[in-house]
Amino acid sequence: MTPSQQPDTPRPLIRLRDLSKEFTGGTRAVDRVTLDIAPGGVFGIVGHSGAGKSTLLRLINLLETPTSGTVTVNGQELTALGSRQLRAARRDIGMVFQQFNLFRSRTVLGNVAYPLRQAGTPRAQARDRAHQALRFVGLADQARRYPEQLSGGQRQRVGIARALATQPPVLLCDEATSALDPQTTGEVLALLRRVNDELGVTIVLITHEMEVVRALCDRMAVLDAGRIVETGPVREVFAAPQHPTTRAFVRSAVQASPLLDLLPAALRKHGVDEAVAASVLAEVSA
């Protein structure tokens, strides 16, 4: 946590304090993480596989029980809740998965209506809201089909519609595009962009792809061996990565891009200081 972000940012939507997760056998997947995520943005958590990203994300809705530390979402301390209250709180935290995790036994509409029915919404109303969510993701015409009849990108859009059905203020995305091809990844990223812009839903996503962070996130954190080693606005982190892990990520992202030649102009456009831009270019060409 950078102290400078404290004064002018609104009350954080997600507050993690000294959060650790130790698995049996002593592996510390998440190591004393303290992090504030402000409402309204798209927050990216990057890290290599095994860095603890997935565990950290699953600690936010307590799918994983922390060994120590606290989780507060929307002013409610989840780590202090009983199981019944926790279940109620989870309805305000949508989640999207890498493998979509749709119910094969239910239609597209049935999948999207499921969380509403679980929350006690009457059948007719649940159907209406599920239809509404499907329209938002552009799958209104697929309502009666089954997940296996859809493409990967369509399945993920159903997953997003299902996660948004209960109109949660926050959406957790667990490598939401990692199982998709580049073209479909673009579609899903564009949809998540709309989720954030049009619905005002705060998004927290984990990914190992810097492209995703660059396309979607405004702030980011870099996770290395269970610890947050760097955090800040994406633009700043890209422009002046501090930690070696971050540098490696930024370099991989930039080198992977065929648009390397356009980098100086892009840096200027985003208001990066000339000196910083020069050092970035030096770093990249190294």
Binding site: L63, A89, N101, R104
Partner: peptide
């Protein structure tokens, strides 16, 4: 049964019996 769908249901706040 795919553990992922159980995780999805848990994330939605569905209780164990349900």
């Amino acid at each position: 049964v795919e553990p992922g769908v159980i995780e999805a249901a848990r994330a939605m706040g569905t209780g164990p019996v349900r």
